[in-house]
């Protein structure tokens, strides 16, 4: 569990990026921070691994105040995946993935073997192991980034718009992959995006933010969709434009869902267990 207690961050320039932010991020769930550009998402995320230190307030991981921990040690037990992967251009794929274990003192051979297995986990062909990042597609690079984030087997995985720079088709693939991964690995994932659809797709808990890291609404996608806290949320999730207002239309073959403009949006099927997200 990660807990923010009245955390504020003012940058040297004077910008108050985050103001009095409090939030509990439950373990083994995916929490998505969503909000428009400049709302402080990245700042909040980076305070978790002490890439940024708060000006006031405290952050605890499993009850431990992180300001008492050494930043480098803390970062090595937290996975971090960013947009454009941030891979080291002069390391091969496998060495990029093995970076953290090797830094932490694991023998090279073992670290590489383990990294090969991680390539399988994130759905990358092992034949790519000895390529350089520049020789991969954007989507492949992003998978390597995820593998690197998982390499030290961290309990926490921070992801900052990890799929922001890939095309929609690849993004959908990566999202599906992440959902599968999360089902297998059960990490505490903190995910930043400004795509509300992505937030609803991935998040167990969705946090909608306004400028200054001000929380507008926290809840499961179901809660937010069924009861937007205010007009801002309503327009942010597209409820006001009728994009999410679906109606049932009967056809000879069954029931389909159409949006307010009469476009088909899906089909109606019986509910399954646990499908209440």
């Amino acid at each position: 569990m990660i807990e923010f207690r009245s955390v504020s961050k003012q940058f040297p320039g004077g910008t108050v990026a985050v103001n009095d932010f409090s939030l509990v991020i439950p373990s083994r769930k995916t929490t998505v921070l969503v909000g428009s550009s400049g709302s402080g998402k990245t700042t909040i995320l980076r305070m978790i691994n002490r890439m940024i230190d708060p000006t006031s307030g405290s952050i605890e991981i499993d009850g431990e105040d992180i300001s008492t921990l050494q930043p480098v040690k803390l970062r090595r037990r937290i996975g971090y995946v960013m947009q454009n992967s941030g891979l080291l251009p002069h390391f091969s794929v496998i060495d990029n993935v093995a970076t953290v274990p090797i830094l932490s003192g694991m023998p090279k051979k073992k670290a590489r073997e383990q990294s090969l297995a991680l390539l399988d986990t994130v759905g990358l062909d092992r034949s790519l192991a000895h390529r350089y990042p520049s020789q991969l597609s954007g989507g492949q690079q992003q998978r390597v980034g995820v593998a690197r984030g998982l390499a030290a087997n961290p309990n926490i995985l921070l992801m900052d718009e990890p799929f922001g720079a890939v095309d929609p088709i690849v993004r959908a693939e990566l999202q599906a992959e992440l959902i599968r991964l999360q089902r297998e690995l059960d990490k505490t994932v903190v995910f930043v995006t400004h795509d509300i659809d992505e937030a609803f797709l991935l998040g167990d808990q969705v946090v909608i933010l306004e400028t200054g890291g001000h929380i507008v609404q926290v809840g499961s996608p179901t809660e937010i969709l069924s009861d937007p806290a205010n007009d801002f949320v309503a327009s942010f999730i597209g409820a006001d434009k009728g994009k999410r207002a679906l109606t049932i239309r009967k056809t000879p073959r069954g029931e389909i869902l159409v949006d307010s403009e009469g476009r088909a949006a899906g089909v109606l099927v019986p509910a399954q267990d646990g499908a209440d997200r």
Binding site: N49, L74, R75, G86, P89, V100, S104
Partner: peptide, 18 residues
């Protein structure tokens, strides 16, 4: 050097020296 590369190196837990 691309700032993001160094940023990422720091984020995964490299020391300044590393």
């Amino acid at each position: 050097i691309d700032r993001r590369v160094i940023d990422a190196a720091r984020a995964v837990g490299m020391t300044e020296w590393q």
